[in-house]
């Protein structure tokens, strides 16, 4: 019981890490997806390269490079900043792929119709394509939120004091690993259930009336 305050401190860091990297990843993901779909040859190739490299390597390797290896080229980051950067860069690549799936599922007639009323390509993307693509991406986005919530736990390895790290610290002192980590497991479980319920509500609210389609996008390991 006396361990509760420090677990709450850890939980706070976990939630901060989750939400900031989700949002930062969203903006990065939008940029990458648009670059990949609408960019010229070079821009599109750069976006594909970035997405494939990030998705083809473990998050932990990315965190190690940012936290342990960057100082050797003169970039030294606090552990928490390295964690935020690593999680955001990672999430951006996955979100880009979800969003690309959504963009490509929007009928090409939408873009054509926007151009016929005189919108520029950029205006059409901003006003017509993106608002629809973002709505279609909400289920994938909820999946990503839960993925991030769980995977923030590995930044404990680069010494960020989030929930798992606090738990490990207490457990190592009391040698009550089972009890402490059972509590932590329950905290994560409750959070995943709460988050997915909230997003489901959100999704229903934003659904375009009469349009029931869901995008078929391969999701990563979340729920």
């Amino acid at each position: 019981m006396e361990s509760l305050p420090s677990l709450l401190d850890g939980l706070y860091i976990t939630l901060i890490l989750t939400f900031i990297s989700l949002i930062a990843g969203l903006f990065l993901g939008i940029g990458l997806a648009l670059g990949r779909v609408y960019g010229g040859k070079i821009v599109s190739a750069i976006c594909i390269g970035y997405i494939e490299i990030i998705r083809g390597t473990p998050l932990l390797v990315q965190l190690f490079i940012i936290y342990f290896a960057f100082p050797s080229i003169g970039i030294t980051l606090e552990a928490i900043d390295a964690a935020l950067l690593g999680l955001s860069l990672n999430s951006g690549a996955y979100q880009a792929e979800y969003l690309r799936g959504s963009i490509q599922s929007i009928p090409s007639g939408q873009m054509v119709a926007a151009r016929t009323i005189g919108m520029t390509k950029l205006q059409s993307i901003k006003n017509i394509v993106l608002p629809q693509a973002l709505r279609i991406s909400i289920p994938a986005w909820s999946n990503e939120l839960i993925y991030l919530l769980k995977y923030t736990s590995i930044v404990y390895i680069i010494q960020v004091k989030e929930l798992t790290a606090e738990g490990k610290f207490i457990a190592a002192e009391t040698f009550k690993f089972l009890e402490i980590f059972a509590i932590i497991a329950i905290i994560y479980l409750v959070l995943t259930i709460v988050f997915s319920t909230i997003i489901e509500k959100f999704e229903k609210k934003l659904r375009i009336p009469g349009l029931g389609e869901k995008a078929k996008i391969g999701l990563r390991n979340a729920l």
């Binding site: 995977y151 736990s153 994560y188």
Partner: peptide, 17 residues
């Protein structure tokens, strides 16, 4: 349960626990 908790927590429960 197994889909809702982080892998590292599962590892800790199995190994340390």
């Amino acid at each position: 349960v197994f889909r809702g908790i982080p892998l590292i927590v599962i590892f800790f429960l199995f190994y340390f626990g």
